[in-house]
Amino acid sequence: MKVEMMKERVKSLFRYKDLLAQLVSRDIKLKYRRSFLGYLWSVLNPLMTMAVMSVVFSQMFKKGIENYPVYLLSGNILYSFMRESTTHGLTSITGNASLLKKTYVPKYIFTLSKVTSDLVNLGFSFCALLVVMLVTRVQFSFTIFLCLIPVIELYFFTLGLSLFLAQASVFFRDVQYIWGPVVLAWMYLTPLLYPIDALPPKLGWIVSHLNPLYYYVQPFRQAVMYAQLPDWTLVWRGALIAVVMLIIGLWSFAKAKDKFILHI
């Protein structure tokens, strides 16, 4: 019975793949429409942010980290993806109210399309990272391809989180306002600006065990900038957390979706 339902769901996702493609391309097209440099901003923006931050913070953590710009940027593009896509995902249902009231489409498609268009944006940011790596003469290695693993895990983790937030914000608009500070705190609790061993041991343990983002940022860095194989323990934990988050997201969304219409 359950399996049949799942099959039906996957089929319906397949049926709406064109809609998904259209929504993603709409987001990407509209993002830079009427700006002079257009898509180039997707690469320039993380570069400029990185430049500002590394000037400020490299003074503070001078001893700890070699090649600070790459360290910072590699963590930051993953974090930014998580922040952007959850923030967009959060309003994906309430923002499409007029459409949802008037025509039938699977509602999760709006959340899925937001997270996916931000994933495309992550691709652009990755180009920025490659540029900085070339400029700072980081040694490239085949392990760079393995960075896809944490990225895919992060995508599903973020999707689950966004689905959860999207349905919650239909009933409680407060979620939108709470989420800003939450992701800010999350940024400081993730070793993006500082090395993990700069933290006091207790806090360091908490961050490296309880912060899901750490499970994605750390293997990503290992693969991209240190030419190492990612730490498989982290990779497995990351996968597990992503699956759990996705299930929570899908379950809460599926439970709430029929009531959306009364609240949007």
Partner: peptide, 10 residues
């Protein structure tokens, strides 16, 4: 976009 909403391909 509208075609896709109605379930039709590009």
């Amino acid at each position: 976009l509208n075609g896709a909403l109605l379930g039709h391909s590009k």
